[in-house]
């Protein structure tokens, strides 16, 4: 079996966990900072085994609905099928936002990588936010 690091290798007695179940991630997640200028809410759904991710941006006077995209779930190891992280990507045309998210102690930690394609002079930027259910 091919590998790139020790963590990729199954132990002699161990078996792979197979497909990752996204259900531990499902629900509505609210930013712990009510005054955030970033993403203030996430709605995660499971449909036919797939993870769907809907995000809302902090806009005035109402949040911006960023739409719903496919998410990809990850476990904490090759022998576990319980999701504890996911990735997703939003393409808004003028910018692309990739989010890389994981669960830690009941808090969802979200890293976003935001790249502009509109020659507006804005720098591509990274942000990190925290969510509770």
């Amino acid at each position: 079996m091919k590998f790139t690091r020790t963590e990729d290798q199954l132990t002699a007695e161990g078996a792979g966990g197979g497909s990752v179940d996204p259900s531990p991630l499902v629900g509505t997640w609210l930013n712990t900072d009510k005054r955030t200028g970033g993403i203030n809410k996430l709605i995660l759904r499971q449909v036919d085994g797939a993870l769907l991710v809907r995000a809302f941006g902090a806009c005035d006077p109402e949040p911006c609905d960023l739409g719903e995209v496919r998410g990809y779930a990850f476990s904490n190891g090759i022998s576990s099928s319980e999701a504890m992280a996911f990735t997703a990507s939003f393409d808004f045309g003028f910018m692309e936002t990739s989010i890389a998210v994981y669960l830690k102690g009941g808090i969802l930690v979200l890293d976003s990588f935001n790249a502009f394609h509109d020659d507006s002079g804005r720098a591509n930027y990274f942000s990190r936010e925290f969510f509770h259910s």
């Binding site: 970033g38 203030n40 806009c59 939003f90 509109d118 507006s120």
Partner: peptide, 11 residues
């Protein structure tokens, strides 16, 4: 006018 998805996108 700059397009944006959240307040942090704005200069």
């Amino acid at each position: 006018t700059l397009a944006f998805t959240r307040a942090n996108d704005l200069l």
